[in-house]
Each structure stands twice: as structure tokens, then as C-alpha cells.
């Protein structure tokens, strides 16, 4: 264990926060979505690092599940984006404010 677990976790935290910033700052729905994927990736990195630290596979399995769930989410999310685009011709999330208050 030359590189410490902590380093991996720190890296993952940085990536996670970057992803969160992406969600907050980008207006393109696809971009927001990609930022969320980045957050999930960061969580995966932390999980794998912890899995090596603990020496059991649970963390890796968690990652496996997260990746697959992300695939499902991506499919539905992109379908939603396409559907919205058909109706509104825009995927700018700032234009989605029919309902408020």
C-alpha cells in the first residue's frame, strides 16, 4: 500500500464537489446530468479505495451496482431530455419553470 487510502478518498472528494458544482452551475440539462455522473464516479473511487483498505469485496460490489444503476438512470434521463426537447425545443433547465411558488 504505497499510496494511502486517504489520498484516494481526498481525490474522490474533490471530484465529487466538482460534480456538485457542475450540477449547480450548468444550465444545459445534459451537462447537469454528466456532472451527476461525475459525482457517482467520485463515490465509486472512494468505495474502491475503502474496499482495498478493508480487504473485502463489498465495496467493489457496491461500485458494480452503482455503475449499472447509473446506466439505467442515464437511459431514462436521456429519454426524458429527448422528450422535453421535442416539446420545448430546449434543454435549458432554466426554461423549465412553468410551476413555482
Amino acid at each position: 500500500m504505497v499510496v494511502q487510502t486517504e489520498s484516494f478518498v481526498m481525490l474522490s472528494i474533490v471530484l465529487f464537489v466538482l460534480g456538485a458544482m457542475g450540477v449547480l452551475l450548468r444550465r444545459n440539462a445534459i451537462m447537469v446530468f454528466m456532472s451527476i455522473e461525475l459525482m457517482l464516479n467520485a463515490a465509486n473511487l472512494a468505495l474502491v479505495a475503502f474496499a482495498r483498505y478493508w480487504g473485502n469485496e463489498t465495496g467493489q460490489l457496491f461500485v458494480f451496482f452503482v455503475i449499472t444503476v447509473a446506466a439505467a438512470e442515464v437511459a431514462v434521463g436521456l429519454a426524458l431530455i429527448v422528450a422535453i426537447f421535442r416539446s420545448k425545443r430546449s434543454i435549458n433547465i432554466d426554461e423549465l419553470h412553468e410551476m413555482k411558488g
Binding site: M31, M34, E37, A70, A71, V82, F85, N92
Partner: peptide, 25 residues
């Protein structure tokens, strides 16, 4: 394969399909 490959290809495909490269910016 799954993430960088399949999922991101899907993203790219949708971006290109919708012509949404610069939308929202």
C-alpha cells in the same frame, strides 16, 4: 467499457441528436 464506453457514447449520441452542444450556455 460500460461507463466510458457505453454510457458516454449514449451521451454523445443524444447531444449530437439534439444539436445541443452549446445549449444552455
Amino acid at each position: 467499457t460500460v461507463y466510458a464506453g457505453a454510457i458516454m457514447v449514449l451521451f454523445l449520441f443524444v447531444i449530437m441528436l439534439l444539436g445541443a452542444e452549446k445549449l444552455g450556455t
